[in-house]
């Protein structure tokens, strides 16, 4: 199924692999940060509710 990439197979494949890895990396970074900030915020909000 993989098309015959001829001479530059390694170049084309490396371009795709690295690019997709970078994309996955940045998505993961956003996701992790979102989760971390959300949990901190929930923590602060609960603390505030208890003290009010």
């Amino acid at each position: 199924m993989i098309p015959d990439l001829g001479r530059y197979a390694s170049e084309v494949l490396s371009a795709y692999v690295v690019s997709l890895a970078l994309l996955a990396g940045v998505v993961a970074w956003y996701w992790l940060r979102a989760r971390a900030v959300r949990s901190q915020l929930d923590q602060v909000e609960q603390r505030q509710e208890r003290t009010e």
Binding site: E11, S14, A15, V18, S19, L22, L23, V26, Y30
Partner: peptide, 17 residues
């Protein structure tokens, strides 16, 4: 950060191409 990563991708794929 998205712009940064897009620039990185453009750089790498441009160099490879």
């Amino acid at each position: 950060p998205v712009g940064l990563v897009m620039t990185l991708i453009a750089l790498f794929t441009g160099a490879v191409w």
